[in-house]
Design a protein around this nucleic acid. Sequence first.
DNA 1: GTCTATAAGCGGATAGAC
DNA 2: GTCTATCCGCTTATAGAC
Lengths: 192, 192
Amino acid sequence: MKETISRRKIILQEAAHLFREKSYPGATLRELARRAGIQGGSIYHHFASKQEILFELMDHTMSDMIERLSDQLADIDSPLEKLRTTVHFHIEYHVTGPDQTYITDEELRNLEPENYLKVVAKRDCYQQIIEEVLRAGKAEQDWQLDEPKLYTRALIKMCAGVSTWFKPEGALSIKQIADSYAALLCNGLLPR
Amino acid sequence: MKETISRRKIILQEAAHLFREKSYPGATLRELARRAGIQGGSIYHHFASKQEILFELMDHTMSDMIERLSDQLADIDSPLEKLRTTVHFHIEYHVTGPDQTYITDEELRNLEPENYLKVVAKRDCYQQIIEEVLRAGKAEQDWQLDEPKLYTRALIKMCAGVSTWFKPEGALSIKQIADSYAALLCNGLLPR
DNA sequence: GTCTATAAGCGGATAGAC
DNA sequence: GTCTATCCGCTTATAGAC
C-alpha cells in the first residue's frame, strides 16, 4: 500500500487550491510549482500550458459530478427522494472538494473558446439531470413550479453556496444543513 | 441637463465590467484606460492604485445595498411582505447592476487585508438585515426555520445567482422570476 | 522527471511635458 | 486632466543539461 499519487495529480490539486485563492490569472506557475514541490519549468513536463491545467480540472470535475449524481439517482423512484438525494449530493460534493467545485463554478470566463464549449456542454448536462428530477415531481406529484429551469438554478446556487461558508467545526453538520435545505425546497414545492 | 458623468465614474463603471469579464488580476489598467477613453498613465490622476478602484467599487456597492434595502423595509410591518420585498430587491439590484454586484460578491479575496475587513463588515451588516426579517417571521408567524442564518444564505445565493443567467429577451421578466422565488421561499417557510 | 537559464513580453506604477 | 516615455519586476513558456 504505497502512496502513489502521481505528481500530475498533485499539481492538479494544488492548482485547484491556488486558483481558488488567487483566481486563474492571479495564480503563477512558479507558485504552483513551489507548492507541488518542483521548479517552475518542470510543470511543462506534465502539462502543455497553464490553460490545460485549468481545463483538465474543470472538465474532470464536471464529468465526475455527472457520473456520481446519475449513479445515485438511478436506484430511486420517488421524485421526493430524488430531490433529497440531489440536494445532499450537490452540497456534499461541493463541501468535500471546495477548491475543484469553486473553480468549476467560477472560472468559465478564463477558458479559451474551445475549452469553454466543452465544459459548458457538461454543465448543461448536469443541470438537465436536476431539471428532470423537478419535471418528474411536477408530473407525478403536482409540485408547484411553472418553470423547472428556474428552480433548478435556485437549487444549484443555494447548495453550491454552502461550501463558501461551511466550517467543519461549526454547530451544524453537512447532513443537517442538507436536510434543512431539502426540507425548504420540498415544503416549498408541495401544493397546499 | 448636461451629461455630467465624471471621468472617475466612467472608470469605475468600466472597471466593474472589465473585472467581471477578466477577474481583478486578469484585468489590466491599460485596457481599463482604453475603455474609459484615456491613456494608461492618466488613471493615476483619478485613483492612487488598481486596488483603490476595486475597493471603491465594492465598498460603494455594499453601502448602497444596505441603504436601499433598509429604506424599502422600513415602511413594512408584515414579515411575509418584508420577505417578498427582500427577494425582489436582491434580485433586481443584482440584475440591474450585474457588474458591480458580481465584483462585490466574488472579489473579496483580492482585497488587501485592511479593505477586506471594511467590506466584510458591510456585507455582514447586509446579511444581518435579511436575517432579521427571517427571525421576525419565525417569532410572529411560526416560520419553519431552526437557523435563520442558514436560510439567509440560501436566499442570498439563489437570488444573486439570477444575474448570472438572466436575459432581458427571455420568456420571464424580473418581476415574474422574483415572484416565483419569493413564492418558493414563503411556501417553504410556512408551517403545514 | 527534474533542474537551471533565459527568452520575450506584459504588468503596475511614476515623472514630467503640455 | 491627459499625454508620452520609461522603470523594473514578474509572467508564461522554451531549451538543453543531468
